[in-house]
Write a protein that binds this DNA or RNA. Structure first.
Lengths: 214, 214
DNA sequence: CCACCAAATCCGTCTGACAGATTGACCCCG
DNA sequence: CGGGGTCAATCTGTCAGACGGATTTGGTGG
């Protein structure tokens, strides 16, 4: 039955479906009840069961990231650079002592994951989310949660696994994070903005380098 | 049945529901088929029908804007300032001639709406969307479409309807738009960034003034 | 106390029947 | 010839009874 009907079409009658599928009318009716519950059909007594216009299901935004297409990552990084540099600046101005502490904790967690040679995506995202929350504007946290931790991809760097694990690379990331966190903690909005921007532009450069190498 | 069951609970048996509601078992079963189709219950043969954990339905993002709460508008304007100033800078670098023309057309449309004393929200949004598209990074357009034209509220300025319609106000908005569009057309990324930022910070200031006056 | 078995309970399916609503065909009248 | 009315066929909605398979519960024996 999949794809064979258009809105406005009439399904085969229950009697015919019973014959076609060698099941009792009960089974057919319950299947139609299920379709009806999903808004896919409308039974009309005396007339038949009619196919309805499918209700548009909103695709979750920002989730069609093609990790095998490096430009897809770069595109999102550009958007993130815009949002997160502003978030860092606002966090520097607005963070509470507790939020400041949370950011530091998250930063330490990323460092710990690096030192343990463990995956860092989760800890990395948690740091970025903590910064967004420290803006005390829920829209920034909402944005971060929208893009989710899939936007902190390591898998896309498969081609350079050696580079990724190198101490130089990890030190670079860590230094960038430390500059952001320090500027926020010092309440220096412009330094925080600039540090976050450099961090994410750096990520863009690393990806663009991959693009050029492939 | 609404609200009376928690996940893991067992619904009354079909036989009991038949008695309770004075309907045949067929009716009960079809109702259960509907609930099952919606993922709300799980029938287990020999055991009963059990309530499932409701599947979280994702709320559309950025749609809970409370137009009567001015701070809600300001929050979104802060996020927009981040995204759209970056978009303006990228548009200045990346726009095609056709996109440049589109931006100009949209700018002219806003001006025409102002001159005709007509609502400008739709034209205003179209201008901002055209700029996002001229980044040639689909993420920026996606973001603009997410927030939609409800983010260009005039209704929230009800308390200052006279100010809104004043030639000085319209001239100010128009000048801000013109500065953005001109910088983009001239390919001056930093000027475009700065102009867009000033435009949206200006909107924030106008709203903050309202906050203070109320 | 634990294991096993039987009875009770419960869902899944089938069958036949009747009621109410709709549709299409045919006939009659203007 | 066209329009309206009537009737039969078709179709969904509901009811009732029956049987099969799966699960749960209770009782008994070791």
């Amino acid at each position: 039955m999949a794809g064979a009907f258009r809105p406005g079409d009439k399904l085969p009658s229950e009697a015919r479906l019973t014959e076609t599928h060698k099941v009792s009318r009960t089974v057919v009716r319950e299947a139609i009840a299920a379709l009806r519950a999903d808004g896919l059909v409308e039974p009309r007594r005396g007339a038949g069961v009619f196919v309805l216009e499918p209700v548009a299901t909103a695709a979750p935004p920002f989730q069609d990231i093609d990790h095998d297409r490096l430009s897809s990552i770069v595109e999102l990084l550009e958007l993130r650079a815009a949002v997160e540099s502003e978030a860092a600046a606002l966090a520097a101005v607005r963070r509470s002592p507790a939020q400041d502490e949370d950011i530091l904790d998250r930063h330490n967690a990323v460092q710990a994951a690096m030192a343990a040679d463990a995956p860092t995506a989760k800890a990395d995202f948690a740091l970025h989310l903590a910064i967004a929350k420290a803006t005390n504007n829920p829209r920034f946290a909402e944005f971060m949660e929208l893009i989710g931790e899939t936007a902190i991809p390591r898998a896309a760097l498969k081609a350079s696994a050696q580079d990724r694990a190198s101490p130089a690379y990890l030190d670079q990331i860590n230094a960038e994070h430390a500059a952001i966190v320090s500027a926020i903690s010092n309440g220096d909005a412009e330094a925080a903005r600039s540090a976050m921007r450099e961090h994410l532009l750096g990520s863009q450069r690393r990806y663009r380098t991959l693009l050029q190498a492939s």
